[in-house]
Design a protein around this nucleic acid. Structure first.
Lengths: 253, 253
DNA sequence: CAGTGGTCTAGACCACTGA
DNA sequence: CAGTGGTCTAGACCACTGC
């Protein structure tokens, strides 16, 4: 069998499970294990390699963590399909766009499911970002955003209640938030967005359908009206395996 | 003891190790476990909670994966210090800047260590991004980029050899690559950068000093000269816990 | 229902840290 | 040197998948 040729050295400084992981990773990258194909069962691997099942599982967990393998309970362990789906037509870069527009420009169908909606007092973070005076209320909206029906991001939006006026739960169900603001002449004119990477925690992972620890692209965005008043503070956590940002840069130096 | 109050239900649908992790996470977030403080030893926790050490380790691994805990071999398990360091003065946004400039604008001292330098044939990816005709050679440079001496990113740069001319190993040691190009009148005028999040693999993790699976911010950038010829293809992998990108967006709609 | 991954156990030894 | 996390074992049972 292909895999038993993996030579392990229990005396080596690198742990056995890392050796197993490296061996498998190499076979995946070299194409000896094709994308989508199933690996031998854990017990089979353990027997073939002469190690315990726990050790095999440690190796598989490592590779699954890196996204190389996909594990399906009751079904098997598979080589994760090709790297990235498709890059798409270059979009309007550096322009403010809503999630919906963004997804559409990639040729997919955007969707949203409201996970929470409330009118409440802002957190310290929200109050600061929106430059609210103490006591001012905000609307807080948490939505699962989808592309072609698949979970893509969790988006938390916070808006100053005084600025947007009455906002009913039904209104935020499906419409784009930007469309809703636009209808009230509250279109943002400028925004600053921070991006960073973090690991999915126990709350976000199940919502996005990824394993705990999966890499997420996290963004914080503050949007201002033309007049300079903050209109939205939004945090979003995108699945790292399904999304990428594009930005265009102009030469300065 | 504080921790033994963690009530576990082995009959529950949520696995015991998740229950343990959630309990610990809650105690960390609520401040009952202060940042920097040490957790009880694994064997101690296992005894206190009435579960096996393996189960405790699974819980700790989960939290460590999320960055909540830091484990030090031979020393102990600690609550990871505060969240993010400091956001810094708003920088020139949407402008091309080198790693060095970028780090300096955050008030830190940039550094570089060359991990590899070669003159070779381009990969398919590189050839496509740089619009090279078959057979054209490239310089390929891999550097560990540091901020205040701490590893921040792995940067892989590829440049068309024909365009940059002779490039000696010594030249790329410490200088900014942009400075070097600038000196040859090869300053890029425009660039497009893609950003996404991925988990650190077995190669990158040790170089950056993070555990396998840690979230990394990955970027691909292609830079063009004013004339439209591609001058650099660069891939970088930033530590997710030490870096964030800032972009400014202008209202379109 | 057979086969798969998911969870859990008890116990052993190694490797590193720090007083 | 005592205490810590890191690795590894053999074996058990559960929960899900798909025929």
């Amino acid at each position: 069998m292909l895999l038993s040729s993996l030579s392990l050295d229990s005396a080596s400084a690198t742990p056995v499970y890392v050796q197993v992981a490296q061996g498998l990773a190499q076979r995946i990258e070299s194409g000896q294990l094709r994308a989508g194909s199933a690996l031998p069962a854990e017990r089979e691997l353990a027997a073939a390699l002469g190690v315990s099942r726990v050790t095999v599982r440690q190796a598989l967990a490592l590779l699954s963590q890196q996204g190389l393998l996909t594990r399906r309970h009751g079904s098997g362990t598979f080589v994760t399909p090709p790297p990235r789906p498709g890059e798409l037509p270059s979009r309007t870069l550096g322009l403010l766009s809503s999630f919906s527009e963004d997804v559409r420009s990639r040729g997919q169908v955007p969707g949203a499911r409201v996970l929470g909606f409330e009118r409440t007092r802002p957190s310290a973070q929200e109050a600061m970002s929106l430059a609210l005076s103490p006591g001012e209320l905000v609307y807080r909206l948490r939505r699962l955003r989808t592309a072609d029906g698949e979970p893509l991001a969790i988006e938390d939006s916070t808006l100053p209640a005084a600025l947007v006026g009455e906002l009913r739960p039904e209104e935020v169900q499906d419409a784009s938030l930007y469309a809703l603001l636009s209808a009230r002449a509250l279109s943002p004119a400028r925004a600053i967005r921070h991006l960073r990477a973090l690991n999915a925690d126990l709350t976000l992972a199940p919502l996005l359908g990824v394993p705990v620890g999966a890499a997420l692209l996290a963004t914080d965005r503050v949007s201002w009206l033309a007049g300079g008043r903050p209109i939205e503070y939004a945090r979003a956590h995108y699945r790292g395996d399904r999304y990428d940002f594009v930005m265009e840069l102009q030469g300065g130096a």
